[in-house]
Design a protein around this nucleic acid. Structure first.
Length: 427
RNA sequence: GGAGAAGUCGCCUAGUCCGGUCGAGGGCGCGCGACUGGAAAUCGCGUAAACCCCAAAAGGGUUUCGAGGGUUCGAAUCCCUCCUUCUCCGCCA
């Protein structure tokens, strides 16, 4: 969400930015919102004048009443009454314009970082850097569900009976591996100075409204029946929600947080074969990073955040690459974002395991997250990144650490979390 | 879940019954200044946010006393709904 003052002063920058994002249908909105804003301010100025008159006269009425001057008081009341209708109409207009303006401002995309490559969709995302050798072993890598089944680590059929498609039972060493990845990620982030959080897994509709659009909400969020509560789709929802309407002291920045939570998503719509198994499910767990910082520090934190994920995966001997989101694929709120993708020796391509975003001040403006500074107050910058989301991590882990005999090697970093084991053996 | 009490400007607190000079008094904290060789103590001054008008500054104005709505010329104060906290009871990992 942009600052309307910025838009007012720089309509051409806003329009160029919309073009870069290939959202040409949104171009007329810029002039439309400028016009609405003008009318809004006219109504507001007039309404405020009337209110000040009313306040002034009301004070006089109080004075007349105290003096017992009934007639003068009644005259003053009549004066206020004469402007009541106009004020009522103007107040309604103010609210109406304000809502219209906000609605438009929410869909006008944030100004992207100059470094973001211009492209119309995800096919034009740009690989930035590879970490580790993407190897293809000389034996066949089975589908991840088959690997898990061979290791007696997953039960999909009973999950369909109890909960439907998009759920699973993990068991034994695979379930333990799942937990180990999370525990290791937690300690990995704590070691890098992040504060560990376990947030609420349900949030109120007012918070949901703040952190996402209505359409996103309909497609993602599960609602608790009979309660004003929704299951979170990611811990970012609770973690950013915590900052809504807050003023943070400059000296308490940056806030570097790492949160664990289960994530619940409807995942409405059909998905292809590569999104079956445990790739896209209704319930998964995730270790997340959240940073709230001063504006000048957000580019630095952006680089640190994705680097953390890369380092984490590399410590588990999984080759990864970073893929920068091009302008057309970048969500409207974001200034810059990249995916961390893990190597799949089975598919012989990289696949998304996490996403790192710098939202600039857009999220902070929308949620009123401000910083109290020495020289005045200003909006914070917010960032978030996936450290690890285990079901997808399991795919990458199993494919990259599979031995020819079907057992799975456990890299050293994870062994303390797996009871000291260096291999998951076949049953 | 039931009963009761409460939420005021960074913190504590006055004001709420009986609506008007209360956008809000006091204390603490903080900032500036005086006093001092320096400090403490003392004294004086100051001490929120968002937005609008004004080219800008100066200045003026609107809104905000947990949130939202209502009554009224006028609401911290009256009415309704919700949220939060505390105490007691009940239930439960």
């Amino acid at each position: 969400m942009l600052d309307i003052k910025f838009l007012r002063a720089n309509p051409d920058i806003v329009k160029d930015n919309i073009k870069k994002k290939f959202q040409h249908d949104k171009l007329p909105l810029v002039d439309e919102v400028i016009e609405l804003d003008k009318e809004f301010r006219e109504a507001k100025t007039r309404a405020e004048y009337l209110r000040s008159q009313r306040n002034k006269i009301s004070k006089q009425i109080g004075f007349f009443m105290a003096q017992g001057q009934k007639e003068e008081a009644e005259n003053a009341k009549a004066e206020v009454a004469s402007m009541a209708k106009e004020l009522e109409d103007l107040s309604a207009k103010e609210v109406e314009y304000e809502e219209k303006i906000r609605k438009i401002m929410l869909v006008i995309p944030n100004i992207i970082d100059p470094s973001v490559p211009v492209g119309k969709d995800d096919s034009e995302n740009v690989e930035i850097e590879r970490f580790g050798e993407p190897l293809v072993p000389d034996f066949e890598i089975p589908y991840h569900v088959d690997i898990m089944e061979k290791l007696n680590g997953i039960e999909l059929d009973p999950a369909r009976d109890t909960s439907g498609n998009g759920f699973y039972y993990l068991k034994g060493d695979i379930a333990r591996l799942h937990s180990a990845c999370l525990s290791y990620a937690r300690d990995f982030m704590i070691d890098r100075g992040f504060t560990y959080y376990i947030p609420p897994y349900m949030i109120r509709s007012s918070v949901v409204d703040g952190v996402m659009s209505f359409a996103e909400m309909e497609n993602m969020m599960y609602k608790i029946e009979g309660e004003d509560l929704y299951l979170i789709g990611t811990s970012e929802h609770s973690m950013i929600g915590k900052f809504i309407d807050t003023m943070i002291d400059e000296k308490d920045l940056p806030q570097t947080l790492t949160s664990y939570s289960p994530c619940f998503r409807k995942e409405v719509g059909a998905h292809g074969i590569e999104e079956r198994g445990v790739y896209r499910i209704h319930q998964f767990e995730k270790q997340e990073m959240i940073v709230v910082c001063r504006p000048e520090e957000s580019p630095m934190w952006y680089d640190k955040l994705w680097q953390n994920t890369v380092d984490y995966f590399r410590s588990l001997d999984i080759p990864v690459r970073t893929l920068e989101c091009c302008s057309g694929d970048l969500a409207d709120l974001k200034v810059k974002s990249c995916d961390v993708e893990a190597w799949s020796p089975r598919q012989q391509k990289y696949f998304e395991v996490g996403s790192c975003s710098n939202l600039g001040d857009a999220q902070a403006r929308r949620l009123r997250i401000r910083i109290k500074g020495e020289n005045g107050n200003y909006l914070a910058h917010t960032l978030n990144n996936t450290c690890v989301a285990p079901p997808r991590m399991l795919i990458a882990f199993l494919e990259n650490n599979l031995n020819a005999d079907g057992s799975v090697r456990i890299p050293e970093a994870l062994r303390p979390y797996m009871g000291g084991k260096d291999v998951i053996a076949l049953p």
